[in-house]
């Protein structure tokens, strides 16, 4: 964190992400919230770039800013009264509790970590290679079981979604025995 550019980038990006995250909460229109959420995702990707985590940064843009936002768009489209005033929520208290819990967890990690190893001379001593090879080695080596379980889970979620929305044939024995008519 010695270089001026990194410091400027960090403060601009973190300010942008915090402000847009606040605006996600404060905007009265769901679509406006969605746009601010995308801005938050993009500035988070920028923060990852300042940390030399290129794979995570690109994955953040690809998955969150590119795909999750489109998923939310479809969710908003299927929601009645989406563009009206959405200020009231019955989930205010649970939401606050959940946010406090996450903040406490992150704060605990931040306090608990020994930052001396990762700043100053310790930081200058390490070089930053591309992260793709390391991530690939870990995913298909040490954590291969978790990786495979996650992919099987995602495959089942995909199949489950198809089964849920699949139009069953109305005529024939299977439909009549199923009794979903």
């Amino acid at each position: 964190m010695d270089s001026t550019g990194i410091v400027i980038g960090f403060w601009v990006l973190s300010g942008l992400s915090v402000v847009s995250a606040l605006l996600v909460l404060l905007a009265r229109n769901l679509l406006h919230s969605l746009v601010f959420l995308v801005v938050t995702f993009l500035s988070m990707a920028g923060l990852f770039i300042t940390l030399s985590a290129d794979f995570i940064a690109v994955a953040q843009i690809l998955i969150y800013a590119g795909s999750i936002s489109v998923l939310m768009v479809f969710a908003v489209m299927l929601t009645p009264l989406a563009s009206r005033d959405n200020g009231n929520s019955i989930y205010l208290l649970p939401g606050l509790l959940g946010g406090l819990g996450i903040a406490a967890l992150v704060g605990f990690v931040a306090v608990d970590t020994d930052w001396d190893e990762r700043t100053g001379e310790g930081l200058a001593a390490t070089d930053f290679p591309g992260t793709v090879n390391a991530i690939g080695d870990l995913l298909l080596g040490r954590y291969v079981l978790a990786f495979e379980i996650a992919s099987v889970l995602l495959l089942f979620a995909l199949l489950g979604a198809i089964v849920l929305v699949h139009d069953r044939p109305r005529s024939g024995t299977a439909a009549s025995e199923g009794g979903d008519d």
Binding site: L31, V58, G66, V70, G130
Partner: peptide, 25 residues
Amino acid sequence: IDVGVLYVIAISSIGVLAVFLAGWS
């Protein structure tokens, strides 16, 4: 960068949002 392929796909996925916002607004 080592993630050039992912970068190409990721950047092209941003346009979807612009198209939707244009239609919605």
